[in-house]
Simulated scan of single mutants.
Amino acid sequence: MTRHPEPTATGLGHSPDDHQSLARVRTLDAEALLAGILEHTGIRLTLLGRAPGGQVGAAYVRWPDGRDGVLTWWPDGSPASLRHLRLTADLLRLARGRGIPVPEYTLVAELPDAIAVVQERLPGARPARTDGALVQAMIAMNERFAGLLTDRRDVPVPDLYLRTSGPGFCVHESLERHSDRTRRLLRRAREVGAAHPGPMTGDDLVHLDFHPGNVLVDASGRITGIVDWDGLGRGDRHFALVTLRFDLSLATREERTAAWLDGLLSDLLDPATLQLYWAHMSVRLVDWSIRHHGPAEVRHWLGVAESRIR
Rank of each mutant, 00 (worst) to 15 (best):
H172G: 06
D180T: 14
D203E: 15
R184G: 07
D209I: 02
D180R: 14
H178M: 02
T182E: 05
L205A: 10
L185E: 04
R187G: 12
A189L: 04
G198Y: 05
P197N: 11
R181L: 11
E191T: 12
H207C: 04
G213K: 06
M200N: 00
E191G: 13
A195D: 14
V206Y: 04
H172A: 05
G213D: 14
L205P: 08
V192P: 12
D180K: 11
R183E: 08
G198C: 00
G202K: 07
P197E: 10
A195M: 01
A195E: 13
D209W: 02
L205D: 02
E173H: 15
F210E: 05
A189W: 03
N214G: 07
L185M: 06
H196Y: 09
R188Q: 13
D180N: 11
G198W: 13
S179E: 04
P197A: 11
T201Y: 02
D203K: 06
R177D: 13
E173A: 15
V192G: 11
T201M: 14
R188V: 13
H211S: 00
M200H: 00
D209R: 01
A194G: 10
D204H: 10
R190W: 02
E191R: 13
A189Q: 09
R187I: 03
D204K: 09
R188A: 13
S179C: 09
R187E: 15
N214V: 05
P212W: 07
P199L: 10
R183M: 04
H211I: 02
R177H: 12
A195R: 14
P199W: 10
H178K: 03
E176G: 10
